[in-house]
Simulated assay, not measured.
Amino acid sequence: MLNSLAELSFQFWTKYKQDIPNLSQFSQHVPAQEIMERIEDLVIRAVTQVFTAQSPSFNFLQNSKNTEYDPATGVNRLSQSNFQTITVGNAKSTKRYARLMKVLEIIYINLQDGTKSTKREIYYQDPKLFGKQNNSDSAIEQAASLLQVPRNRLNIISAGKGLIAGNVSYCDSEVQVQVGNRVCKIPPDMDVVSNIETDAEFIIIIEKDTVLSRLVDEHFFDSYNAIGLTGCGYPDLVTREFARRIIEERGWIPVFILTDFDPHGFQILCTYTFGSFKLSGECDSLALPFSHWLGIHFGDCQGNPLPLTNGDIKLIEKLVDRSQFKQLPNSYQNRRFLQWKDSLIQMRDSNEKFEIESVLIEGNISDYIGRKIEKGAWI
């Protein structure tokens, strides 16, 4: 079963790599010089607006309001419909404009000097202007959208929270790291990561860091030729980029995702697979559309269920309504995703949710994963 899935994975990613160069919007390969020139053009445009008695403004696509599912590639992509305008006007809009200009200045200096800043460091460049880090973070996302360049190419890095274990090695700033059956932190700056090597038979992406640690305690990665990876809940960009880097080079490795059987676990599954709504312009380079859902499935749960909250039910209705789950069952991918939808509806109708730990009543997590993979019990 695993060999057949590896062959299907290879076929999928071979075609994906052939098609994606014609589709990508936010390219990972824009040179620093070109990004600097785009910033210069924006500044010249702003100065021209001032000298022609116009209110300086920026127009850019809103990622969260321009997301559409592309069934040809299996990822969320950026459409070209809803633009956001930030202009010099009242006090609130002028401050937003000033924050964006400040972030563009920091990006320009970093690219020019070859330095990098964390999101936290950008906030502290001018805490009075930004007010709180949410505002500087928003300005960073706006700058990426305005420049049409992924944030990780703007010399801005986040602290990172992803963890990895298993059969993989990589070079981090010229230091070779051999992971093995232990938990290692994923480097926050993927630009200094090179020579990712593995002959793993599969990757398992796990919602919770506690579960990855449990697998290490059970010596799972001594028994199975696999890579384990977690974003510690909703994944950050670095975690998703690391997983995608492995697949870019070794597309035959099947990717499994293990989450709680609850609406948030399902949304995490969708974020890894289709890409996020918030960063739809970057999904082409971050999503893992040939991921398979290993569990937790409804029939796997043996413990006492928890009831759904009103918030859970609202999230389920929102997830069920996604276009990924409205396609005709005319392809392998579409049929799988309709099964995902059926599981979500089953969750709603039963009014039950389960955590990954519910499978521990009989056995351990390693045994559960081993049985699922041996039986081909993935969706």
Rank of each mutant, 00 (worst) to 15 (best):
G233M: 08
N364M: 02
P56F: 10
V211D: 04
P289C: 02
I206Q: 02
G89A: 11
V238R: 01
L61C: 06
R120V: 06
G311N: 15
C283N: 13
S285C: 01
M1H: 14
S343G: 10
S64D: 15
N135K: 04
S331N: 06
L269N: 11
L147I: 14
A200V: 11
L154T: 09
G162N: 08
V88F: 06
T85W: 00
V216K: 01
L328K: 04
L78M: 14
F256S: 07
V168N: 03
R336I: 05
G299P: 09
C232V: 11
F51A: 02
I35G: 11
Q142M: 14
G166Q: 05
E7V: 05
P235W: 03
T94I: 07
K161A: 07
G233D: 09
Y124E: 06
R244Y: 05
R250T: 10
G231D: 03
V255L: 06
Y124F: 12
L146M: 11
H29A: 11
I206E: 03
S323T: 08
V216W: 00
C232R: 12
P188R: 10
I373N: 03
K161F: 04
T94K: 09
A46C: 09
N155R: 13
N181W: 10
I186V: 15
S366M: 00
T239W: 06
R99D: 08
K185M: 11
F130K: 04
F83V: 08
V47R: 13
V179R: 01
I246E: 00
L215I: 01
W378K: 01
S291I: 07
N59F: 15
P263I: 13
F325C: 00
T52A: 05
I253V: 10
N155F: 07
I379L: 11
K95M: 04
G299A: 15
G228A: 02
Y272T: 03
C171K: 08
N330E: 05
Y69Q: 03
L286V: 01
Y234E: 13
V103M: 02
A165F: 05
Q324M: 09
L258F: 15
T198Q: 12
F221N: 00
R336A: 06
A165G: 02
A6E: 14
